[in-house]
Amino acid sequence: MSAVSPLHKGVFFLLALGIVLCLAGHRYRTQQVESQITWQDVNIALQNVETAKLELFQSLNAKAAVN
């Protein structure tokens, strides 16, 4: 059984470091976003959903009129 070479060790270390940094970055971004979004933003998002829903109905009605 061959021993793990220093090169492999280095690659594994860098890979592990990269994963840890990615996870930490993701967590940081999530926390930043969570700290910024308020219920007023949710309110606006719901208004946009309602508008998108109405636009969908308009398209459906227009298509139905053509068909």
Binding site: V33, E34, S35, I37, T38, W39, Q40, D41, V42, A45, L46, N48, V49, A52, K53, E55, L56
Partner: peptide
């Protein structure tokens, strides 16, 4: 003002994308 807002916001954004 914030508890649960980010999660709800993300879900509504997904619904907005689905409607569009």
């Amino acid at each position: 003002q914030r508890v649960g807002a980010a999660t709800t916001y993300a879900l509504l954004r997904d619904n907005l994308a689905a409607f569009r």
